[in-house]
Amino acid sequence: MNHVHDERELAGIAKRLRRDVIEMITAAKSGHPGGSLSATEIMVTLYWSVMRHDPKNPQWKDRDRIILSKGHACPILYAAMAETGYTPKDQLNTLRQMGSIYQGHPDVRFIPALEASTGSLGQGLSLGIGMALAAQLNQSPSRTYVILGDGEVQEGQIWEAAMFAGNRGMDNLVCIIDYNRIQLDGFTKDIQDLEPLGAKWQAFNWHVISVDGHSIPALQQAFAEAASTRNKPTLLIANTVKGKGVSFMENNPKYHGSAPSAEEAVAALKELA
């Protein structure tokens, strides 16, 4: 797919995807808006200006892979896949309904263009390592991008995977932590603090970049730095705001996992107009 370079155009796409997220979750009457809105710029940057992929040929062998390990944020993934042409846009509002391809968590049985079925936290980085190893064996230029939630980093398997990729110096692997600082039960620092987060990954032999996760130019630069980093996997700590773009959802743990009411949705869409 041709990349979009115009910054204003990318910002416009991000706003459109945020609207899709609000509409989908409102129609479904359940879902996870906060972590979808925090990951919006990450998703836009990857799909429109970083990844080598072809919506017309989703099984292209040398495509870059993207795994949304924090599967509950699938509304933003579905919005991006629909906008780029992988899946039908007019069915987005069937999210979470029986028979919908837009399942409550990503499910490859319904969308074969997905790289992985996710939803049980902690597993995406290991899957990404497997895909990146296969690319190395195939001498493919394919790069693998794995998006984790910050709460997800509390899972032990993440650290097994971090150790493996760091020790192997897997420079075709990029992990992005959507560091929105909120998880279901409250603020991450109160539940089980991750800090010092960057130092921990550096100690596991990762190249660590801390970046404003809502600045598309900053994300583009970080992904370019990752691509030119040799013999180390890269971790992007994307500092984000949960519920970004909708004032009453921002930094509000309530919107980790609850849908807006009809009135709230109207207010949210007005802010995203």
């Binding site: 290991s126 899957l127 190893l133 995977a161 493996f164």
Partner: peptide, 14 residues
């Protein structure tokens, strides 16, 4: 746990 999921990733990679 990591090994099993890496295996699944390798399988997805063909």
């Amino acid at each position: 746990a990591n090994m099993v999921a890496i295996g699944s990733g390798l399988a997805s990679g063909g």
